[in-house]
């Protein structure tokens, strides 16, 4: 893993005066992975990202981005990493292409390469028609896409996206998430932050759930689900056939069968039992209308995790008061 990780953070800490914004966090992002920094407002996601880019000083801990130290070799890091800040801003008086031209010049691309890259990038994000329009006329979604175009143009190895979907409607969100998957398909590693767990859950390979400056949970969404929600898959099935419920209950690993409607059953199991369930329906010569496994929802994981934490905290605080 460490062989193939592009970002390694170890005990990363940021303090503002006496307040700790990021508190000894450690994580790694693998090559070609989509990694989500998720958590509520003020949890420290943006601060973490700024430290990765060398845009804010690190109070303690170490971080390595593509083998470079962002504090000591910021130019090497910034040459290889594309960054889209939350509510990304452009020069409103300039056209989309001119905005990218300025960035491309700062990066140091020569004229021919510059123009080629800009045209390609704008095309990829679907802004080719408005390349010569002033950014002042752009909608929120178009600006976000222009931000992605900048990262594409840069040819970054890592894309760091801060709240890429905030303020976007569902369709624009879906489009943007599609483009983020496109990054992954090209081998670009993606680190994205969001406070909207549901929206980004589908694209992230792994997530780190932040809570007041600390990483509370980290891992693949499915694993976290099993860990926090007490394990167990929930399989919904809609089929007919006499005695189906009884037969399903006999499948190894199924711990319970629940009737959720006419001809609708819900199985609780410790593994994905869809193949066996389907086989049972077929064996009964019933008609299978629906068969699906519920992905554990990040929202549920997050809520459950902190609900579970709270009583402990209350006890601790009570003890402190008593003392």
């Amino acid at each position: 893993m460490s062989q193939d990780s592009v970002i390694q953070a170890n005990g990363l800490t940021k303090t503002y005066g006496s307040a700790t914004a990021v508190d000894h966090i450690s994580f790694e992002v693998g090559r070609g992975e989509i990694f989500g920094l998720l958590g509520p407002n003020g949890a420290g996601k943006t601060t973490t990202i700024l430290m990765l880019l060398g845009l804010t000083d690190i109070s303690a801990g170490e971080v390595s981005v593509l083998g470079f130290n962002p504090a000591r070799e910021p130019l090497s890091v910034k040459r290889r990493v594309g960054y889209m800040p939350d509510t990304v801003g452009f020069y409103d008086g300039l056209t989309a292409a001119d905005n990218l031209r300025y960035t491309a010049r700062l990066i140091g691309f020569r004229v021919l390469e510059r123009e080629k890259r800009i045209a390609e990038a704008l095309d990829r994000v679907g802004l080719a028609d408005v390349a010569e329009k002033r950014v002042g006329t752009f909608s929120r979604g178009m600006r976000q896409r222009l931000g992605l175009a900048e990262i594409l143009m840069k040819g970054a190895q890592i894309a760091i996206l801060d709240e890429p979907t905030s303020g976007l409607d569902p369709q624009a969100t879906a489009e943007l998430l599609g483009m983020i998957r496109g990054f992954k398909a090209e081998g670009v590693s993606v680190l994205l932050s969001s406070h909207l767990l549901e929206r980004v859950q589908s694209v992230c390979d792994r997530v780190a759930l932040f809570s007041s400056g600390k990483i509370a949970l980290m891992g693949r969404v499915a694993d976290l689900g099993r860990e926090v929600l007490g394990g167990g898959y929930v399989v919904d099935i809609e089929a007919d056939g006499a005695g189906l419920a009884e037969r399903l209950a006999l499948i190894p690993g199924v711990s319970g069968v629940e009737k959720t409607g006419i001809g609708k059953l819900r199985l609780h199991a410790d593994r994905d039992v869809r193949p066996e369930a389907a086989a049972e329906v077929v064996a009964l010569q019933g008609r299978l209308k629906f068969l699906g496994v519920q992905e554990p929802s990040l929202e549920a994981i997050y809520t459950r995790y902190f609900e579970a934490k709270k009583p402990e905290q209350a006890v601790q605080e009570g003890a402190r008061h008593a003392a």
Binding site: L55, P74, L75, V81, V88, L106, E150
Partner: peptide
């Protein structure tokens, strides 16, 4: 105010 600063400073310049 245009929120361009962090984007520009994330390019390889000081």
């Amino acid at each position: 105010n245009r929120r361009t600063l962090s984007r520009i400073l994330s390019q390889p310049i000081y």
